[in-house]
Design a protein around this nucleic acid. Structure first.
Lengths: 106, 106
DNA sequence: TTGAAATATCGCGAGTTGACGATATGTTAA
DNA sequence: TTAACATATCGTCAACTCGCGATATTTCAA
């Protein structure tokens, strides 16, 4: 059936999951956080400072991205370090940078 | 200043625009529509049928994606054909397929 | 133990999104 | 014209998102 369709998954569940994860990334602060974490591991406080947001907000953004598998965290003393856990994130963010963040065009 | 930062745009406007466009793509039906349109041009009715949604909903999804530059349309008689207008979409969707849609994993 | 630092969670309210039925617009044929 | 087809837009409502202040939890040092 469905003749052509090279590849084309029409698995509603898979599409929904993909959309959920994409939506998780679709926030200016969260894109920025991923850009930062692609360069190394950072604490919640460092991330909040870099993004110029309150720490509870940073914590919330990080929780969302951890929930969909993008990030992981380890506690070390009082601090919690976050890092990128999903290897594909680098490529995805790279696409986004190339299209939207690279050349300063209107 | 800010020492390292290979590249790293922290342009809030650009990040916001990128997030807006990502959010536009972050819907299961819209991902599916883009997958379809990457293979050719289709009318609203054909797209609605493929996605198994009402035509007014298809029209709405298409309008959103056209608004952020992903798609373009031409009227031909009674029908309106949509096609991909943003060349980077292929690569972005390709990343998404690779991560979320390729292998049937839990 | 007590207090402070670092992080996480909760609750609220404003704003946004999505589905859907109803209606409007544009196009062709009779 | 009128009717039917194809698409677009509108209005409504429930659900979700975001920012934010308040509170809770965990850890360490004194």
């Amino acid at each position: 059936m469905d003749g052509a369709a090279k590849f084309q998954s029409f698995n509603v569940e898979a599409l929904t999951h993909a959309a959920d994860c994409l939506r998780t990334l679709a926030h200016p602060v969260r894109i920025r956080i991923v850009q930062l974490l692609l360069q190394g591991r950072y604490t919640v406080g460092e991330i909040a400072e870099d993004c110029r947001i309150a720490e509870n907000q940073a914590s919330e953004h990080l929780r969302l991205m951890q929930r969909c598998g993008f990030l992981s965290s380890q506690r070390e003393g009082r601090c919690v370090f976050y890092e990128v856990a999903e290897p594909h994130l680098e490529q995805i963010v790279s696409c986004i940078e190339e299209r939207f963040l690279a050349q300063p065009k209107s």
